[in-house]
Amino acid sequence: MAGEIYRKPVSFALMAAVTVLVGSIVTMAYPMFRAEMHEKLENLRAFTPLELAGRDVYQREGCVGCHTQTVRPLRSEVLRYGDYSKAGEFYFDRPFLWGSKRTGPDLAREGGKRPDAWHARHYADPQAVTPRSNMPRYAFLAQARLDPSEARTHYRVLASLSPKGQWTATDADFAALSEKTELDALIAYTQWLGHAVQRKQAAGGVELALANPLGDSPQAVARGAKVFEENCAVCHGAEGHGETQIAPNLMDDTFLGVKGDMPDGAYFGLITGGSDAKAALGRPGLPDGGMTAFGGQLANDDIWAVISWIRAQQAHERQEAPAREQTEHLPGGQH
């Protein structure tokens, strides 16, 4: 190799610059001019001012340090979170917030999985919802009011970077923010996540005729009690009596907002498919949904065991308090 270059710092620096630019151009600059880097899913819509304000909070608090927002195309990930992430979901993300560490779970499919009231409680005090969680408390967000003029500036800057017509907020939308807190905003953003993609577990239908293979055996009931405590009590309460605005009472005779219980197959379909199974069941539930799809997250036998426990518990309550006033709880199923 010619030794001359090691005596000429300017030529040397130019050669070094060219050397580092080759890979930069091929893998970073050139792709920018390809359509595959700028896809947009048809269902994807821009943030509302409230959602954008929530995203700003998400950035400010460094949520990206513990939560990813990209589901990998791996079987176990799709089971846990939902369909894997698509390039076209991130069209409005400046910057991307995929993260690189999952101290907490992935959030790409968090939208629509749980009701707002659950998030409000969880953000304020995560350990009250999940005792051994290590997430910090964000109760202070509920005290912080949004600043509509700042939100408008942020919104307009982002809107100016997209083609016209994609960002549609009006002045009234910004004015309405003065009533909202940072917590409202963060929850709205959380519910925005993943909205453009069909929730995969819901794709299967509901088979009402399915019978519980475990029946009412004591082992099944005991196992169901444990699974219920670990996965369901968070929203439905330790006894299954529900929580206001979060989850319905499972012990009354109302199912998904309509009087009259349904067979075990309906329970199974709803637990595996989550909110999206409501349509198949023909009952409304709570309009904005919130039942997590546990299909793939829990073993089928564990789901059946939970149903065994619920049935045993229902029978137990009917015996204990036949005249019990059900109206003290929520009026009907809100899945």
């Binding site: 610059a17 792709p31 409005f92 910057p95 942020h154």
Partner: peptide
């Protein structure tokens, strides 16, 4: 080279900006 390209952002106030690149492209540049 690295610092200038990746920190290209559109200011939205004195202490707020949005990445000049969006989505997958933002991830790749970052």
């Amino acid at each position: 080279i690295l610092y200038i390209v990746n920190n290209a952002a559109v200011p939205a106030g004195l202490w707020k900006s949005y990445h000049a690149y969006a989505g997958v492209n933002s991830a790749n540049v970052q």
